[in-house]
Design a protein around this nucleic acid. Structure first.
Lengths: 140, 140
DNA sequence: CTTGACCCTCTAGTCACTAGAGGGATTATG
DNA sequence: CATAATCCCTCTAGTGACTAGAGGGTCAAG
């Protein structure tokens, strides 16, 4: 017995919101599914798996364009996967750069907040630091 | 002697791009400056300092709305600065959450890439992991 | 007084959705 | 079988924080 899901069912199964599923169809990430007599979308297991793949990749921060490439590979298992490797490696580099930037920011914000002793805005370290970049310790 | 800058000069002084300066004026972060006879914007030191403050805060990841609040405080030095404290603390919490999420992601991507031994897309760990969430070790 | 670098406004595009209006389809119950 | 609740449809417009481009005007140096 082949199961059929409405768009709402699919949303519940995958955790992807209904308008987002329609959006993915619009931009061609999801293929347009068959429709019921009344014109409503009807999905099967393949669509569910594909959307799961997309959701997982989005959750890992891959861009829509990167996901297009990854989906293409997953549908052509004979292709070499060096492209997938490159996409994942780019993502890892990006993640590492972001972590570094955020850590410097964390240190700066911590310093700001620890120097801060209440009072009025005129004496406020937070405002002071923002007004004068020289008061920052690190780069950010 | 009071100096005057064109929008391009101001861009060079602060590192904020010309269209971005106009955008900040449009949304009311920067006040509309006086104009030359021919209708070009002419800025002074106050504008330069204000834009520097904005650029610095943006660089630290504060939202435009947060910056509106901080600018308001910097212009009213008699107000208590508990609001600035709250804004900075929220930002710090956000930064910490992002770092945690990115670290989990980094570990996941590293694992993906180290399990990965080349070959075709059909055997590719990267594609496999994305297809099947159970292959992930951590939450992300 | 001409040249070239700069400036103006306005519209539309980016990314990845999200919200809402106005209406039709499906399903559970009486 | 009728109705009501819940779902679904398309379409347009909005989000944040800019960025790009068209089509034109201004300014300062030589």
């Amino acid at each position: 017995m082949l199961k059929e899901f409405s768009i709402g069912d699919l949303a519940k199964l995958t955790g992807v919101k209904v308008p987002t599923i329609r959006y993915y169809e619009e931009i061609g990430l999801m293929t347009a599914p068959p429709r019921s007599e009344g014109g409503q979308r009807r999905y099967g297991d393949t669509a569910r798996d594909r959307l799961g793949f997309i959701a997982h990749a989005r959750d890992m921060g891959f861009s829509i364009e990167a996901i297009r490439g990854l989906l293409d590979l997953s549908e052509h298992p004979e292709k070499p996967c060096s492209r997938a490797d490159a996409i994942a490696r780019d993502r890892l580099d990006d993640v590492r750069r972001r972590i570094e930037k955020l850590k410097r920011l964390e240190a700066e914000l911590e310093r700001m907040l620890s120097d801060h002793r209440g009072g009025t805005a005129g004496e406020c370290q937070i405002i002071e630091v923002l007004s004068d970049h020289r008061r920052c310790h690190g780069e950010h």
